[in-house]
Write a protein that binds this DNA or RNA. Structure first.
Length: 563
RNA sequence: GCGCCCAUAGUUCAAUGGAUAGAACACCAGCCUUCUAAGCUGGUUAUGUAGGUUCGAUUCCUACUGGGCGUACCA
């Protein structure tokens, strides 16, 4: 499809003597199909030429001819271009069948590494639905960037270090039980108790800070407790990642950088950027209208920012990244602005390659989630509920129990992931059970169902598609709009990558499924006397199934073969 | 106080500054002896307020209102 746009821009450039790239940006896809496949609004040109836009449109369109474009029409101030539809089916379907599941991929990223920091759960805290967005978006961006040829490194920057562990250790020593087998939920209740007690006794916080300081200094007793907390938490978290079918290339979390923060402090000192203020060491950012970036607490312990800076330099050295994407909520916007600014001030031009892919806050109907107050929904519970609901639906479909279980997982998990990816990342959202567990309309089961229908059709026709297909028979309105949409898939991937926005792909997949279902209801495939038309339709079905599956995979959603 | 983000239909969300602001859910009415009804067809309802820039604003700018988040030793 891009080639059509380029052709139009080229011939317009020839005609008007205006730069190709400028024209290419102005060319748009009309909202209404009756205005063609591409259009060129003449307002800006009319301003330059000082001629009314309708006249400009008319005079340019008059004797314009472009290969592959069937009709060029000036309507008011717009020039509308209509693609030659017979040619379209031929080009699009052949291309998809040839490339298969590689259709839409590219090599633009070859030789470049993208580090994606996502999910990043906190040890000894619930893996809750607030983590779903980061987890799903990060995983999808990983797949999208890989599809475009980039080498990706998925990092789970585990929150396994910091004052919170001082708190937890204090709580455990006061109220814990050495012999009991602990779960994350037990640790959370200890943590909650700590905060309750600390409200009455300010000394507890003091104590916790002291304990963390000693933990950083490798005090054996504390380190072994910390290790225990970490191990049991990771074990539970990995169970959830397994359900989600998400893998990481690195689990280097905050504790990993404990022995690397010294180098960062030394570098800052050497560059004379460090200032002592109120007992702490800071990088002053007042000039940039930001609070200071605190690098070292007054008691000498490290902070979130220090460890994140250490992580940046470690990753630069280790991966020499083209970009690093931080898929982290917008509540941490200031934090990232600060540390990116510090890197820039240190004189590293590649500070621009650090990108905070932020997203809106997820809250519950009763309000903001709060681990301390116990207002929280565990992600694992949501996933399991979803699987149960799918199982309920699949009950009477005559499947074996292993078949049913595996299907329920693909569909149920997919629905949860998809619900997090369908809305734009920036908007704040409220977690609603009925929304996440809705399997109709804008949901992955809808797309999966459509895919399964197509597979079933293809199977029933049971025919090898040969090369002599008369694609020009595909001229039904539903066929043409489906073809046009299929041709846009590569652009959709590129857009999703450049905006760090998997929702672009999610919306596309739903639209594609919708277009197919219209075709399905209006254009029979199996009961068809005209064999040439049947062949052409089957190939359209195959092409569509490839793209739906590919799109879902890029979102991290599996595609079942029947349901 | 200051900074950032958000405000679109009853609800949840779309819309690179462009033509008649799109969906889904919910609700109502139809469609299975013909390709899987997790489907299809039809119907009702919306850009917070006041200005500005522009040929053209949901989109950009300013103020206001209402929400969310952040704002020096939490992550």
């Amino acid at each position: 499809m891009e080639t059509f746009k380029n052709k139009i821009a080229e011939s317009l450039a020839k005609k008007t003597n205006i730069d190709f790239n400028i024209l290419s940006e102005v060319i748009e896809v009309p909202t209404n199909e009756e205005f063609g496949d591409f259009s060129f609004p003449c307002f800006q040109l009319s301003k330059i030429l000082k001629i009314a836009p309708t006249i400009v449109a008319k005079s340019i369109a008059e004797d314009l001819e472009i290969k592959g474009i069937e009709k060029i029409e000036a309507i008011g101030p717009y020039i509308n271009f209509f693609i030659d539809k017979k040619n379209l089916a031929n080009v699009v379907i052949k291309n998809i069948l040839k490339k298969g599941d590689k259709y839409g991929s590219s090599l633009v990223g070859i030789g470049k590494t993208v580090v994606i920091d996502f999910s990043s759960v906190n040890i000894a805290k619930p893996f809750h639905i607030g983590h779903l967005k980061s987890t799903a978006i990060g995983n999808s961006l990983y797949k999208i960037y890989s599809f475009l040829g980039y080498q990706c490194v998925g990092v789970n920057h585990v929150g396994d270090w910091g004052t919170q562990f001082g708190k937890l250790i204090v709580a455990f020593k006061k109220w814990g039980d050495d012999k009991k087998k602990y779960s994350v939920k037990d640790l959370v209740s200890l943590y909650v108790k700590f905060h309750k007690e600390a409200e009455k006794d300010e000394g507890l916080n003091e104590e916790a800070r002291g304990v963390f300081k000693k933990l950083e200094a490798n005090e054996i007793e504390y380190v072994s407790l910390w290790r225990m907390f970490r191990e049991l938490s990771l074990k539970e978290f990995k169970r959830v990642y397994k359900l989600l079918n998400i893998k990481f290339d690195s689990w280097n979390g905050e504790s990993f950088y404990n022995d690397k923060v010294g180098d960062v402090v030394a570098m800052l000192e050497e560059k004379k950027m460090l200032e002592k203020s109120r007992g702490a060491y800071i990088v002053d950012l007042e000039k940039f209208n930001m609070p200071p970036c605190i690098v070292k607490r007054s008691d000498g312990a490290s902070l979130y920012a220090t460890r994140d800076l250490a992580a940046i330099f470690y990753r630069k050295k280790e991966y020499n990244f083209y970009k690093t994407l931080y898929v982290v909520g917008n509540a941490q916007q200031l934090h990232f602005k600060q540390i990116f600014k510090v890197v820039e001030l240190m004189g590293f031009g590649w500070a621009d390659d650090l990108i905070h892919v932020d997203f809106g806050t997820v809250s519950l109907q009763e309000g903001a989630m709060s681990t301390r107050k116990g207002i929280v929904v565990y992600l694992e519970d949501v996933l399991n509920e979803s699987i149960i609901k799918v199982n309920e639906i699949l009950k009477n479909k005559g499947l074996t129990s292993t078949e049913q279980n595996s299907l329920a997982k693909k569909i149920g998990i997919g629905a949860v992931i998809f619900s997090a990816l369908f809305v734009g990342r920036q908007s704040d959202s409220t977690f609603l059970w009925e929304k996440v567990l809705n399997f109709e309309g804008d949901s992955s089961p809808y797309a999966q169902y459509t895919y399964v229908r197509i597979r079933s059709l293809i199977k029933k026709v049971n025919k090898n598609i040969n090369n002599n297909i008369n694609y020009s028979l595909l001229c039904h309105e539903n066929e043409l709009s489906l073809l046009k949409l299929l041709s846009e898939f590569p652009n959709v991937i590129t857009e999703a990558a450049s905006r760090y926005e998997p929702s672009v792909v999610a919306r596309y997949v739903i639209e594609l499924a919708k277009y197919f279902n219209k075709f399905y209801h209006n254009c029979p495939v199996i009961n068809l006397e005209n064999e040439d038309l049947q062949n052409a339709r089957v190939s359209l079905c195959v092409a569509t199934s490839i793209v739906i599956k590919s799109g879902l995979n890029l979102l991290g959603v599996d595609c079942p073969e029947k349901m």
